[in-house]
Structure formats: structure tokens, C-alpha cells
Nucleic acid binder design. Structure first.
Lengths: 149, 149
DNA sequence: TAATACCCGAGTAATACAGTCAACTATTAA
DNA sequence: TTAATAGTTGACTGTATTACTCGGGTATTA
């Protein structure tokens, strides 16, 4: 899982909408102000969020972005997947990389990165926007009641 | 936790030593061949591993690197920490960044990244070089008997 | 003393990241 | 109908990081 600041911005912005404007359209300029993110950068991010059907756009005065679906159904992993192209920790999966090249001693750490990936993804799938708004997102670490894909 | 290919190379190289040359000094050129990593790049990596007291160097003919300590005691997290400077997922911790700037609406996702960090670190702490050599590194996902810092 | 293997600093090409800019189009309220 | 609003789009740019390469040097040992 790639964790860039673009992904963090995206999550912050989505949580911002969930918190301040759940049903009415929310202007990016407001999010930019509240979260201290460049407006133009936000536009790029929301283009991707829209393509992934996480938000719907409404043009013109009074327009803005609305969440598509409930904030309880939108997971952090959805948001990050939408804006960060690559979702792999390991280069092992695609055969073209220098890891796991099929030599006699092939990548000894393949499974390690794969399991780590599963762990991270599982965590981010376990947290919804709603969890972040209300602040009780620790269920995973305490109860760990998620399904491993 | 920063996961670069430098960190992956470091883990691969350390597992290589643990597997092929546990007690006798191991030449970098051999590791480079077996793991398909640039020799000069490996040298840089091992300089850092040495500084972190994970390996000891032996010069001259018949020299090389040896593990400092048992392969059961060296954790993946030790290796990655040694070569990857930054160990933080989130910019929230150091106050100089744009996240968590102390505005009225401070970073809503601070705890999320912090918990993720704890999770990743916990996992990498639970896997030793020995685990990777013998291939049974799944204890974490199944039993999850680690202490959360 | 010569070969070996680590030591070390400088440099560099490629890539990704973060952000900017300029212009455009659709929508709505006056 | 018109002007303001707000999203749409693509290109572009500076910076930082990454992933190396290169060219020597130094300690050790056979």
C-alpha cells in the first residue's frame, strides 16, 4: 500500500466532507481552507475520487462535491486506492521487476511483503469515514474483527 | 514505516547471510550474485547495517560480513530501521509539517496514521531472519501474540 | 607484497511528488 | 439572458528522493 501525502490529503478531505457537509454539496474551496490544502491540488484529487465513484460533483453556484454512499460504507482503503495508483508494497508480483526474478534463489522475502500488504489493507478496510469523524477507530487494534481477504 | 527497495534489499541480503553463511564471513559479491543486487549499492547498505550493529565486517581475503547476534534475535524491523532513515508514515508528529498544524480543525486522521504505524512496526518486529529462512513467518497473522508498544 | 574485500565520498539519471497555471464548460441565480 | 459560480482538464514545473554508478582508498591476510 502506497502512503503518499496525496493519499493523506484525500482521506482528510473526505473526512472533512463527512463531518461538515454530509448531504449538501461541499465546495472544495471550503475544504481547502479548513484542511489547509492547495485548492488546485484538491481538484486533481477529487477528479480521481469522482472517477472511483466515491463522490458526485454538482456544478454551478451552490454546487460542490457530495459523498456517494454513506460515510459508514466508505472505507479509508477505498479513498487511498482511488488516488494512489500503485497499491503494492512489493515488486514481487509483477514479474518484470528485479525482485523474484525466478533465479535459483528467488526472493526469500516475497511472502513477508505480501502478508504485510494484507495486514495494511485489512486495517484500512476496517476504518470508515464515520469512524474517523466520531473518533472511535481503534476497534481493529483492540478487537480485530476483520475478514482477511 | 518507510518501505523502499533499499529496505527490501537490506532484508534480502540479511536473510541471504542467515541462510548461506551464518557463522563464517560472507562476501558481498556473493550476496550480490545470489540476490541480483548491485555490489556498490550493497556496500552502502551494509555500511548502515554495520553502524546499527547488525553485522560485523572482516577485511582482507576470506573476509566479509557476519551477523552480529543470532538470526532469531534479528528482526526485520531492525534491518529496515537501520537503512531507511525516516520511520514515520505521518507528517503529524513533527510540528513543522503541514499536517496537524494546530488550526481549529486539526488533522482528523492523525490517530489513523499513528495506529497504522504501530501495526506495521508490530508486524515487522514479529518476524526474525530465522523465520524467513525457514519460511514460517505467519505467526503474526494467525496468533498475533505481539506486544503493542 | 600482492591480492582481496571492505570503506567512503562524490556524482548522476530517472522518477515521483507536490503544486501551479491557464483556459474551458456546465449550472444556477438574478 | 447574463454574470457569477464551481467544477473540468491538461500541461507544465520545481524539488526531492531514489537507486544507483564511479573512482579511488585502506586494512588484512595468505
Amino acid at each position: 500500500m502506497k502512503l503518499s501525502s496525496k493519499g493523506r490529503y484525500a482521506v482528510m478531505a473526505m473526512v472533512d466532507i463527512a463531518k461538515y457537509a454530509e448531504d449538501k454539496p461541499c465546495k472544495l474551496s471550503n475544504i481547502a481552507l479548513r484542511q489547509n490544502i492547495s485548492l488546485h491540488y484538491l481538484e486533481q484529487i477529487f477528479l480521481k475520487l469522482k472517477k472511483s465513484n466515491l463522490v458526485r460533483s454538482h456544478r454551478g453556484p451552490g454546487g460542490g462535491y457530495k459523498l456517494l454512499g454513506s460515510k459508514k460504507d466508505i472505507k479509508v482503503s477505498d479513498v487511498i486506492s482511488a488516488v494512489d495508483e500503485s497499491i503494492k508494497t512489493t515488486g514481487c508480483n509483477n514479474s518484470a521487476t528485479s525482485f523474484c526474478t525466478g533465479k535459483n534463489v528467488r526472493c526469500l522475502t516475497h511472502d513477508l511483503w505480501e502478508d504485510l500488504e494484507i495486514l495494511i489493507e485489512g486495517y484500512l478496510e476496517s476504518v470508515s469515514l464515520h469512524d474517523l469523524v466520531v473518533g472511535n477507530k481503534n476497534s481493529f487494534l483492540e478487537e480485530r474483527n476483520y475478514e482477511q481477504s
